[in-house]
Simulated assay, not measured.
Amino acid sequence: MQTDQITAAQEPPAPAIDAVKPPRADPRDWLLLLKPRVISLVVFTGAIGLFIAPGHIGVFAAAIAIFCIALGAGAAGAINMWYDRDIDALMKRTVSRPIPAGRINPEAALDYGIVLSIVSVVLLGMATNLCAAASLAVSIFYYAVIYTMWLKRRTPQNIVIGGGAGAFPAIIGWAAVTGHIGLLPVLLFAIVFFWTPPHFWSLSLYAAKDYAKAGIPMLPVVKGAKHTRLNVLVYAVILLLVAVSPWPLHLLGPVYGLSALVMSAAFLYFCWGVYADRQDAHGHSLTGDKPARAAFKFSLLYLFIIFAAVAVDRLV
């Protein structure tokens, strides 16, 4: 008996249960899995597409359409986080995401994304029409499979080709009202498509070390900073031409046209700053990539103003 007591006394205390359990997910983690910042932009551009479409849609159906666009975008984001959990764990700006941080099980995240994808597409089809539902399904597949699983880790053109993933909402919103796809939503798609490279490449210039560490072939990692700066400028020029085009094509009026011209010229100015940034012999910034950071921040304002101008132009 005494021996048993001594042995028991010498045994280390059992670890607390909480010490061996991973942190618990709370509702905010499930929301973060949907990439809410991306959703806000998607909802805005989708709502503009719905607002400017010719024809009529009831308030209830319109609300469901916007909800489904948001839900579909979030579902694609959840699948993206499930697939990218290995590289997210290596990058500073993504290491605290719910899956790499251990707060959400990867399999649960995948199930979550798949279920929300199906619900969003089916619900949109029931509330509006097949064209809108099919467009949403294609956008989810584009982001979750074509961009995330195929392009992102294989080519420095991942952002260029993958830019289509975030460009669908205006088309989906338009289709929800009309049941078809017109030229104007295609041009709005093109605006987001050509906006994406200078937007993301500006970010990748000052996050290049993170991308290199994770093995993602972003343009600065594969082709170097100097080549990336030139491409930022080239795509900003293309974007200016595309953004202004609805005006001379008489799809939108002077309120939009002048807004697009001013904002695109301003964005081009910021992108010129990226190109002309003081660099060392290897093309690396001597200013801490301040112009790239400024261009990235302005790019967010740019897209908001451009799409807001579309709505205002239709109102007046």
Rank of each mutant, 00 (worst) to 15 (best):
P106L: 13
Y112D: 00
V119R: 11
I172D: 00
V145H: 06
A190W: 05
S139D: 00
Q157D: 06
I172V: 13
V122F: 09
V138E: 00
L110G: 04
L136R: 06
I191E: 00
Y143W: 04
V122A: 14
G179C: 12
S139Y: 04
L123R: 13
G113Q: 10
A137D: 00
A165P: 08
A190D: 01
G173K: 08
L184K: 14
P197Q: 06
G164C: 11
I191M: 13
R103Y: 07
I146D: 00
A144T: 00
L110R: 13
Q157K: 11
V138S: 04
P169N: 03
I104E: 03
L136I: 03
K152G: 03
I172A: 04
T148Q: 02
E107K: 15
Y112W: 04
G113M: 11
N129E: 05
Y147W: 05
V177T: 12
A144Q: 01
V115K: 10
A175L: 02
V192G: 00
S120G: 05
A134T: 11
D111K: 15
L116V: 04
A190S: 13
V160F: 14
A127C: 12
A108R: 15
I161R: 01
N158A: 15
A175R: 06
W195Q: 06
G166C: 07
Y112A: 03
W150P: 02
L184F: 15
F194R: 08
E107L: 15
P185A: 13
A127V: 13
F193S: 03
L116D: 01
V138I: 15
W174H: 15
M149Q: 06
A137E: 00
W150Y: 14
T155Y: 10
N158F: 06
M149I: 04
W195C: 09
P198D: 01
P169F: 02
L116W: 06
W195M: 10
A190F: 12
L188N: 03
Y147Q: 05
V145F: 14
G163H: 09
P198L: 09
A127R: 13
G173A: 07
G166V: 11
S120N: 03
V115R: 10
A109V: 12
I191L: 12
N105T: 11
P169R: 08
E107C: 09
F141N: 01
Q157T: 05
V160P: 02
I104W: 08
A108C: 09
A170D: 03
V122G: 06
W174P: 09
